[in-house]
Protein backbone atom coordinates (compact mmCIF):
# COMPACT_ATOMS: atom_id res chain seq x y z
CA UNK A 1 0.00 0.00 0.00
CA UNK A 2 2.72 2.41 1.07
CA UNK A 3 4.60 1.75 -2.13
CA UNK A 4 1.53 2.27 -4.21
CA UNK A 5 0.85 5.56 -2.52
CA UNK A 6 4.43 6.70 -3.09
CA UNK A 7 4.16 5.79 -6.74
CA UNK A 8 0.95 7.76 -7.00
CA UNK A 9 2.52 10.80 -5.38
CA UNK A 10 5.51 10.53 -7.65
CA UNK A 11 3.43 10.40 -10.78
CA UNK A 12 1.40 13.39 -9.65
CA UNK A 13 4.63 15.27 -9.05
CA UNK A 14 5.85 14.27 -12.49
CA UNK A 15 2.68 15.51 -14.15
CA UNK A 16 2.86 18.79 -12.27
CA UNK A 17 6.53 19.18 -13.14
CA UNK A 18 5.71 18.62 -16.78
CA UNK A 19 2.91 21.13 -16.63
CA UNK A 20 5.18 23.63 -14.94
CA UNK A 21 7.81 23.05 -17.62
CA UNK A 22 5.47 23.66 -20.54
CA UNK A 23 4.20 26.79 -18.81
CA UNK A 24 7.72 28.07 -18.44
CA UNK A 25 8.96 27.15 -21.91
CA UNK A 26 7.57 30.30 -23.56
CA UNK A 27 9.42 32.39 -21.00
CA UNK A 28 12.57 30.49 -21.73
CA UNK A 29 12.27 31.17 -25.43
CA UNK A 30 11.44 34.78 -24.74
CA UNK A 31 14.76 35.04 -22.96
CA UNK A 32 16.57 33.31 -25.85
CA UNK A 33 14.83 35.57 -28.35
CA UNK A 34 15.87 38.64 -26.42
CA UNK A 35 19.44 37.70 -27.31
CA UNK A 36 18.84 36.47 -30.86
CA UNK A 37 19.72 39.04 -33.52
CA UNK A 38 16.65 39.98 -35.54
CA UNK A 39 18.13 38.79 -38.77
CA UNK A 40 18.88 35.40 -37.33
CA UNK A 41 15.32 35.04 -36.10
CA UNK A 42 14.68 32.62 -38.96
CA UNK A 43 16.81 30.11 -37.09
CA UNK A 44 15.69 28.18 -34.06
CA UNK A 45 17.90 28.39 -31.02
CA UNK A 46 17.77 26.42 -27.80
CA UNK A 47 20.52 28.50 -26.31
CA UNK A 48 21.59 32.08 -26.75
CA UNK A 49 23.45 32.18 -30.09
CA UNK A 50 26.95 33.52 -30.58
CA UNK A 51 27.27 37.26 -30.09
CA UNK A 52 27.99 39.25 -33.24
CA UNK A 53 31.14 41.38 -33.42
CA UNK A 54 31.38 45.06 -34.24
CA UNK A 55 32.34 45.47 -37.89
CA UNK A 56 34.32 48.61 -38.47
CA UNK A 57 33.41 48.69 -42.14
CA UNK A 58 29.69 48.67 -41.36
CA UNK A 59 27.92 51.83 -42.35
CA UNK A 60 26.65 54.03 -39.58
CA UNK A 61 23.28 54.43 -41.28
CA UNK A 62 22.74 50.70 -41.57
CA UNK A 63 23.57 50.25 -37.93
CA UNK A 64 21.11 53.01 -37.08
CA UNK A 65 18.36 51.46 -39.20
CA UNK A 66 18.84 47.83 -38.26
CA UNK A 67 20.40 47.95 -34.81
CA UNK A 68 18.82 51.23 -33.66
CA UNK A 69 22.18 52.79 -32.88
CA UNK A 70 21.40 56.29 -31.64
CA UNK A 71 23.58 58.62 -33.70
CA UNK A 72 22.59 61.70 -31.72
CA UNK A 73 23.74 60.03 -28.53
CA UNK A 74 26.93 58.83 -30.15
CA UNK A 75 27.63 62.40 -31.23
CA UNK A 76 27.11 63.65 -27.74
CA UNK A 77 29.17 60.92 -26.10
CA UNK A 78 32.12 61.57 -28.40
CA UNK A 79 31.64 65.33 -28.39
CA UNK A 80 31.07 65.47 -32.16
CA UNK A 81 29.57 68.51 -33.83
CA UNK A 82 27.77 69.05 -37.09
CA UNK A 83 26.14 66.69 -39.53
CA UNK A 84 27.30 63.09 -39.44
CA UNK A 85 26.91 61.48 -42.83
CA UNK A 86 25.18 58.13 -42.24
CA UNK A 87 26.90 56.69 -45.29
CA UNK A 88 30.20 56.64 -43.42
CA UNK A 89 31.54 53.36 -42.20
CA UNK A 90 32.67 53.22 -38.60
CA UNK A 91 36.27 53.22 -39.76
CA UNK A 92 35.69 56.33 -41.86
CA UNK A 93 33.85 58.00 -39.02
CA UNK A 94 36.74 57.40 -36.68
CA UNK A 95 39.26 58.72 -39.21
CA UNK A 96 37.30 61.84 -40.17
CA UNK A 97 36.37 62.79 -36.65
CA UNK A 98 39.73 61.90 -35.17
CA UNK A 99 38.32 59.35 -32.75
CA UNK A 100 40.27 56.32 -31.69
CA UNK A 101 38.82 53.44 -33.69
CA UNK A 102 39.34 51.02 -30.82
CA UNK A 103 37.47 53.33 -28.51
CA UNK A 104 34.56 53.55 -30.93
CA UNK A 105 34.53 49.77 -31.24
CA UNK A 106 34.48 49.38 -27.47
CA UNK A 107 31.71 51.94 -27.23
CA UNK A 108 29.55 50.12 -29.76
CA UNK A 109 30.30 46.56 -28.69
CA UNK A 110 27.54 46.24 -26.08
CA UNK A 111 25.06 47.82 -28.49
CA UNK A 112 25.90 45.25 -31.10
CA UNK A 113 26.35 42.23 -28.88
CA UNK A 114 23.35 42.82 -26.63
CA UNK A 115 21.47 44.90 -29.11
CA UNK A 116 17.96 44.23 -27.81
CA UNK A 117 18.72 45.04 -24.20
CA UNK A 118 20.75 48.13 -25.01
CA UNK A 119 18.29 49.49 -27.53
CA UNK A 120 15.56 49.14 -24.97
CA UNK A 121 17.62 50.67 -22.19
CA UNK A 122 19.02 53.55 -24.20
CA UNK A 123 15.69 54.50 -25.74
CA UNK A 124 14.14 55.44 -22.45
CA UNK A 125 13.11 52.14 -20.95
CA UNK A 126 13.47 53.40 -17.39
CA UNK A 127 11.36 56.44 -18.13
CA UNK A 128 8.71 54.26 -19.72
CA UNK A 129 8.91 51.87 -16.82
CA UNK A 130 8.35 54.66 -14.35
CA UNK A 131 5.45 55.94 -16.44
CA UNK A 132 3.94 52.49 -16.51
CA UNK A 133 4.37 52.05 -12.77
CA UNK A 134 2.71 55.40 -12.16
CA UNK A 135 -0.16 54.64 -14.52
CA UNK A 136 -0.77 51.01 -13.56
CA UNK A 137 -0.11 51.61 -9.85
CA UNK A 138 -2.38 54.64 -9.57
CA UNK A 139 -5.02 52.93 -11.67
CA UNK A 140 -5.11 49.89 -9.42
CA UNK A 141 -4.90 51.89 -6.19
CA UNK A 142 -7.45 54.55 -7.08
CA UNK A 143 -9.61 52.17 -9.10
CA UNK A 144 -9.71 49.73 -6.21
CA UNK A 145 -10.56 52.46 -3.75
CA UNK A 146 -13.35 53.80 -5.94
CA UNK A 147 -14.58 50.26 -6.54
CA UNK A 148 -14.81 49.74 -2.79
CA UNK A 149 -16.76 52.96 -2.40
CA UNK A 150 -19.10 51.99 -5.24
CA UNK A 151 -19.50 48.53 -3.78
CA UNK A 152 -20.32 49.97 -0.37
CA UNK A 153 -23.06 52.07 -1.87
CA UNK A 154 -24.51 49.35 -4.08
CA UNK A 155 -24.09 46.26 -1.92
CA UNK A 156 -27.37 44.53 -1.23
CA UNK A 157 -29.24 46.68 -3.79
CA UNK A 158 -31.31 48.36 -1.10
CA UNK A 159 -32.92 50.71 -3.59
CA UNK A 160 -34.26 49.91 -7.06
CA UNK A 161 -31.89 52.40 -8.68
CA UNK A 162 -28.89 50.63 -7.15
CA UNK A 163 -29.51 47.76 -9.50
CA UNK A 164 -29.82 50.18 -12.37
CA UNK A 165 -26.47 51.76 -11.58
CA UNK A 166 -24.91 48.33 -11.16
CA UNK A 167 -26.22 47.13 -14.50
CA UNK A 168 -25.03 50.21 -16.26
CA UNK A 169 -21.54 49.50 -14.93
CA UNK A 170 -21.79 45.96 -16.21
CA UNK A 171 -22.76 47.30 -19.61
CA UNK A 172 -19.18 48.50 -19.78
CA UNK A 173 -18.22 44.93 -20.44
CA UNK A 174 -20.08 44.63 -23.71
CA UNK A 175 -19.05 47.99 -25.11
CA UNK A 176 -15.85 47.42 -27.09
CA UNK A 177 -13.22 49.94 -25.98
CA UNK A 178 -12.53 50.90 -29.59
CA UNK A 179 -16.11 52.12 -29.96
CA UNK A 180 -15.73 54.82 -27.37
CA UNK A 181 -12.12 55.69 -27.96
CA UNK A 182 -12.83 58.84 -29.98
CA UNK A 183 -15.44 60.35 -27.67
CA UNK A 184 -13.13 59.56 -24.78
CA UNK A 185 -10.25 61.25 -26.51
CA UNK A 186 -12.41 64.31 -27.10
CA UNK A 187 -13.57 64.52 -23.53
CA UNK A 188 -10.19 63.96 -22.00
CA UNK A 189 -8.14 66.20 -24.25
CA UNK A 190 -10.62 68.88 -25.27
CA UNK A 191 -12.75 69.31 -22.17
CA UNK A 192 -10.34 68.25 -19.47
CA UNK A 193 -7.27 69.51 -21.26
CA UNK A 194 -5.27 66.44 -20.37
CA UNK A 195 -2.97 66.20 -23.36
CA UNK A 196 0.08 64.05 -22.98
CA UNK A 197 -0.73 63.27 -19.37
CA UNK A 198 -0.52 60.05 -17.40
CA UNK A 199 -3.52 61.28 -15.50
CA UNK A 200 -5.65 60.99 -18.65
CA UNK A 201 -4.93 57.27 -18.82
CA UNK A 202 -5.44 56.76 -15.11
CA UNK A 203 -8.76 58.55 -15.42
CA UNK A 204 -9.91 56.19 -18.16
CA UNK A 205 -8.69 53.17 -16.24
CA UNK A 206 -10.50 54.08 -13.05
CA UNK A 207 -13.81 55.11 -14.55
CA UNK A 208 -16.59 52.79 -13.36
CA UNK A 209 -15.32 49.39 -14.34
CA UNK A 210 -17.48 46.31 -14.63
CA UNK A 211 -15.04 44.05 -12.85
CA UNK A 212 -14.31 46.26 -9.86
CA UNK A 213 -17.99 47.00 -9.38
CA UNK A 214 -18.90 43.34 -9.61
CA UNK A 215 -16.15 42.05 -7.34
CA UNK A 216 -16.50 44.65 -4.62
CA UNK A 217 -20.29 44.79 -4.66
CA UNK A 218 -20.55 41.03 -4.28
CA UNK A 219 -17.91 40.89 -1.62
CA UNK A 220 -19.26 43.75 0.43
CA UNK A 221 -22.78 42.34 0.21
CA UNK A 222 -21.46 39.22 1.93
CA UNK A 223 -20.24 41.19 4.93
CA UNK A 224 -22.83 40.88 7.74
CA UNK A 225 -24.96 43.96 8.07
CA UNK A 226 -24.47 43.74 11.82
CA UNK A 227 -20.84 44.87 11.50
CA UNK A 228 -21.99 48.17 10.12
CA UNK A 229 -24.68 48.43 12.76
CA UNK A 230 -22.23 47.50 15.42
CA UNK A 231 -19.99 50.40 14.45
CA UNK A 232 -22.97 52.71 14.67
CA UNK A 233 -23.79 51.36 18.11
CA UNK A 234 -20.19 51.79 19.16
CA UNK A 235 -20.45 55.46 18.35
CA UNK A 236 -18.83 55.39 14.91
CA UNK A 237 -19.91 57.29 11.81
CA UNK A 238 -20.22 55.77 8.41
CA UNK A 239 -16.67 56.73 7.45
CA UNK A 240 -15.38 55.02 10.57
CA UNK A 241 -17.02 51.84 9.37
CA UNK A 242 -15.56 52.34 5.91
CA UNK A 243 -12.06 53.09 7.16
CA UNK A 244 -11.68 50.80 10.17
CA UNK A 245 -13.85 47.83 9.29
CA UNK A 246 -14.61 47.66 5.59
CA UNK A 247 -11.25 48.60 4.09
CA UNK A 248 -9.26 46.06 6.12
CA UNK A 249 -11.68 43.37 4.96
CA UNK A 250 -11.13 44.24 1.31
CA UNK A 251 -7.76 42.49 0.98
CA UNK A 252 -9.09 39.49 -0.86
CA UNK A 253 -11.42 41.25 -3.32
CA UNK A 254 -8.73 43.85 -3.89
CA UNK A 255 -6.28 41.08 -4.72
CA UNK A 256 -8.80 39.61 -7.16
CA UNK A 257 -9.30 43.01 -8.72
CA UNK A 258 -5.60 43.82 -8.81
CA UNK A 259 -4.47 40.47 -10.14
CA UNK A 260 -6.88 40.74 -13.07
CA UNK A 261 -6.64 44.44 -13.81
CA UNK A 262 -2.96 45.04 -13.11
CA UNK A 263 -1.75 43.11 -16.18
CA UNK A 264 -4.40 44.82 -18.31
CA UNK A 265 -3.32 48.25 -17.12
CA UNK A 266 0.31 47.26 -17.42
CA UNK A 267 -0.10 46.06 -20.99
CA UNK A 268 -2.47 48.74 -22.19
CA UNK A 269 -1.12 49.75 -25.57
CA UNK A 270 -3.91 51.77 -27.09
CA UNK A 271 -4.38 54.47 -24.48
CA UNK A 272 -0.64 54.96 -24.17
CA UNK A 273 -0.26 55.49 -27.89
CA UNK A 274 -3.28 57.69 -28.02
CA UNK A 275 -2.75 60.05 -25.15
CA UNK A 276 0.98 60.26 -24.69
CA UNK A 277 3.81 61.72 -26.68
CA UNK A 278 6.72 59.37 -27.45
CA UNK A 279 8.85 60.78 -24.63
CA UNK A 280 6.21 59.68 -22.13
CA UNK A 281 5.18 56.40 -23.68
CA UNK A 282 4.30 53.59 -21.32
CA UNK A 283 6.07 50.27 -21.86
CA UNK A 284 3.73 48.61 -24.39
CA UNK A 285 3.61 51.76 -26.50
CA UNK A 286 7.36 52.05 -26.19
CA UNK A 287 7.88 48.47 -27.34
CA UNK A 288 5.44 48.95 -30.22
CA UNK A 289 7.45 51.84 -31.62
CA UNK A 290 10.57 49.75 -32.01
CA UNK A 291 9.34 48.77 -35.48
CA UNK A 292 9.74 50.71 -38.70
CA UNK A 293 8.13 50.63 -42.12
CA UNK A 294 10.25 47.88 -43.67
CA UNK A 295 11.73 46.15 -40.70
CA UNK A 296 11.52 45.69 -37.05
CA UNK A 297 14.21 45.10 -34.49
CA UNK A 298 12.76 41.90 -33.06
CA UNK A 299 15.67 41.43 -30.70
CA UNK A 300 14.74 44.78 -29.17
CA UNK A 301 11.03 43.99 -29.21
CA UNK A 302 11.59 40.72 -27.37
CA UNK A 303 13.98 42.38 -24.97
CA UNK A 304 11.41 45.08 -24.36
CA UNK A 305 8.72 42.49 -23.67
CA UNK A 306 11.06 40.57 -21.39
CA UNK A 307 12.10 43.64 -19.48
CA UNK A 308 8.57 44.91 -19.07
CA UNK A 309 7.57 41.50 -17.75
CA UNK A 310 10.16 41.56 -15.01
CA UNK A 311 8.65 44.34 -12.87
CA UNK A 312 5.20 42.79 -12.94
CA UNK A 313 6.70 39.43 -12.00
CA UNK A 314 8.37 41.12 -9.06
CA UNK A 315 5.02 42.56 -8.02
CA UNK A 316 3.48 39.10 -8.22
CA UNK A 317 6.19 37.54 -6.14
CA UNK A 318 5.89 40.22 -3.48
CA UNK A 319 2.13 39.88 -3.22
CA UNK A 320 2.11 36.16 -3.89
CA UNK A 321 0.31 35.34 -0.66
CA UNK A 322 -2.43 37.83 -1.33
CA UNK A 323 -2.93 36.58 -4.87
CA UNK A 324 -3.06 32.99 -3.78
CA UNK A 325 -5.63 34.00 -1.22
CA UNK A 326 -7.65 35.68 -3.91
CA UNK A 327 -7.45 32.59 -6.06
CA UNK A 328 -8.64 30.48 -3.12
CA UNK A 329 -11.41 32.89 -2.22
CA UNK A 330 -14.70 31.11 -2.40
CA UNK A 331 -13.06 27.72 -2.63
CA UNK A 332 -12.14 27.48 1.02
CA UNK A 333 -14.20 29.12 3.68
CA UNK A 334 -11.91 31.43 5.60
Amino acid sequence: MERKKRLKNLSIAAILAFYCAISLVPFYFLVIRSFTPTLKSGEFYFWIPERPEVQMNARLGNLASVNNIDITKLKKDFGLKGYIDPRLTLQQLAERQGIDAGELEEYLRPFIQYNGIFVVLSNGFLKSLWGTIVVAGSSVAIGGFLGIMTGTALAGFRRPWHLFVYNSYLLNMIVPPMMVILPQYFIVTQFLGLQDSYFAIVLLHIKGGALSTMVFTTYIAAIPKSLRESVAMDGGKHYHYFWYILLPLMGTPFAIFASIMMPLFWNDLLLGLLFLSPEKYTLPAFVATLGGAYGRNFEAVFSGVLMSLIPILVVYFIFQKLFIRSAMAGAVKG
Partner: peptide
Amino acid sequence: AMVFQNYALYPH
Protein backbone atom coordinates in the same frame (compact mmCIF):
# COMPACT_ATOMS: atom_id res chain seq x y z
CA ALA B 1 -24.86 49.35 23.32
CA MET B 2 -25.91 46.26 21.50
CA VAL B 3 -24.93 42.62 21.49
CA PHE B 4 -25.86 41.03 18.19
CA GLN B 5 -27.04 37.53 17.55
CA ASN B 6 -23.86 36.81 15.54
CA TYR B 7 -21.84 39.04 17.92
CA ALA B 8 -20.66 41.22 14.98
CA LEU B 9 -17.07 41.14 16.20
CA TYR B 10 -14.68 42.95 13.86
CA PRO B 11 -13.02 39.96 12.24
CA HIS B 12 -9.55 41.43 11.57
